[in-house]
Amino acid sequence: MSAPPLVAVVGPTATGKSDLGLELALALGGEVVNADAMQLYRGLDIGTAKLAPHERRGVVHHQLDVLDVTETASVAAYQRAARAVVESLRAAGRTPVLVGGSGLYVQAVLDELEFPGTDPALRAELTAELERDGAAALHARLAAVDPAAAEQVLPSNGRRIVRALEVVALTGRPFRASLPTAGAPRYDAVLLGVDRDVAELDDRVALRVDRMLADGLVPETRALLPHGLAEGRTASRALGYRQVLDALDRDPDHPDLAAVRAETVRATRRFVRRQRSWFRRDRRIHWLDGADPGLAATALSVLTAGARS
């Protein structure tokens, strides 16, 4: 079939995006480009539901396992790397299939978005203040210079507070006013959204967490501690890993797995609702029911219609 220049498969966690992206890449002679911020990390496998190499059915996957857990993920750096992959694939006649639920990462590839710059010296100074004085103190400082930003950023989210203060200092403008706004689409992409009934997806989230725990989420987290997981500003906040780290802090020898499960399910369901809200704003997305037994065929028919239009 004639394929569009780029296919994006987006939507909330646990809807079936990875499997659909794989099927489309196989059908289109394409390759997958990951757009899940936490799947960028080496070692975050079980908790991110990352497809294992043997599950990828020979399809090349890009932007997986490109960061150490101590590195901070940057949407601007991801934008550069993912676009380079997309454009290389297109030049080679391969269809890029962008798959993931990190909304800003998806948008950074698809649309003309420019991000405020960074200043390493200023960032280091603010980070040192965060470590010395704590997130609450920096949040109070943010509230003084940009009250609207302080209302949007959690007082516990030290990394986000540092970034907000950095942007305000560099631009002289409020943080939210300096955030990128979507420009024109960069590619003639077809966007497919995968969602499910809310109650069904809540059940799938619980089952997914149970499976992760059964598959070894706790041992995986323990194995990453010597590599700096607990110190990683981004990786340590990944759903599931954050809850295991908290449980290990409370009792290193006998973590409360029931609490880990309950807290991970609750946090993931909240995250699903935020993802749904983000993606539902994009009118370009063709929404599909993840419970459809003919999901891949339905998606291919949408792509065929899009390629003909």
Rank of each mutant, 00 (worst) to 15 (best):
A8R: 12
G11V: 03
P12E: 07
T13H: 12
G16L: 01
G16I: 01
S18V: 03
A27Q: 10
L28E: 09
G30S: 09
N34M: 03
A37M: 10
A37C: 11
Q39G: 04
L40E: 14
L40D: 13
L40N: 12
R42D: 12
A49E: 13
L51A: 08
P53A: 03
R57D: 04
V60K: 14
D65P: 04
D68I: 00
E71F: 00
L89F: 00
A91K: 14
A92T: 01
G100F: 00
L110D: 04
L110S: 04
L110F: 00
E125D: 14
L126W: 01
L126G: 05
E131N: 15
R132G: 05
R141Y: 02
R141A: 09
A150V: 03
P155S: 06
N157S: 15
G158A: 07
R159N: 08
I161P: 10
L170W: 07
P174I: 04
L179Q: 15
Y187T: 05
D188F: 01
D188P: 10
V190C: 13
L191D: 08
L207I: 01
L207W: 08
R211P: 02
L213Y: 01
L213T: 03
A214R: 14
A223R: 14
L224F: 01
G228Y: 04
E231R: 15
T234L: 07
S236A: 14
S236R: 15
G240V: 05
V244P: 10
A247Q: 11
D249F: 00
R250V: 06
D256Y: 06
L257Q: 13
A258T: 11
R266K: 13
W278F: 12
R280Q: 14
R280L: 11
D282I: 11
G290C: 02
G290F: 00
P293H: 08
A296C: 07
A297V: 10
A297C: 03
T298M: 04
L300W: 02
R308D: 13
S309C: 10
